[in-house]
Amino acid sequence: MTKTDYYEVLGVTRQDSEEEIRKAFRRKAMEYHPDRNKEPDAEEKFKEINEAYQVLSDSSKRAQYDRFGHAGADGGGFDRPFDGFDVFGGFGDIFDSFF
């Protein structure tokens, strides 16, 4: 399973400003919010849009994503040495993902 590029999800480009990302998110949100869209996959679609927005609307998370892609954003990549963490949780989490 490949994950769709966050910029693609929102229909924006890497050069677009925060303002344009915000606008794109609201436009998409209007379309897919489960209160408005009763299609069975609307909620999932909304979550996907929302996830992209949560990352791209935060400048530091966006920078991480631009550098590392989804691996940077999800912290789930099996090819990473410390795959038990989410980079957004801060690096302290690298050694703190055990339970």
């Binding site: 489960p34 909620e43 909304f46 979550k47 929302n50 996830e51 927005y53 949560q54 999800d74 912290g75 789930g76 795959d83 038990g84 963490f85 989410d86 949780g89 989490d93 703190d96 993902s97 055990f98 339970f99």
Partner: peptide
């Protein structure tokens, strides 16, 4: 976490509906 610390998966003030996954060991 094993250390007794809280590992946040969904931070407060996150727009909902939302879902997020983190991998633990």
């Amino acid at each position: 976490l094993a250390s007794g610390k809280m590992s946040t998966i969904i931070p407060r003030n996150t727009t909902i509906p939302y879902s997020h996954t983190r991998v633990y060991k």
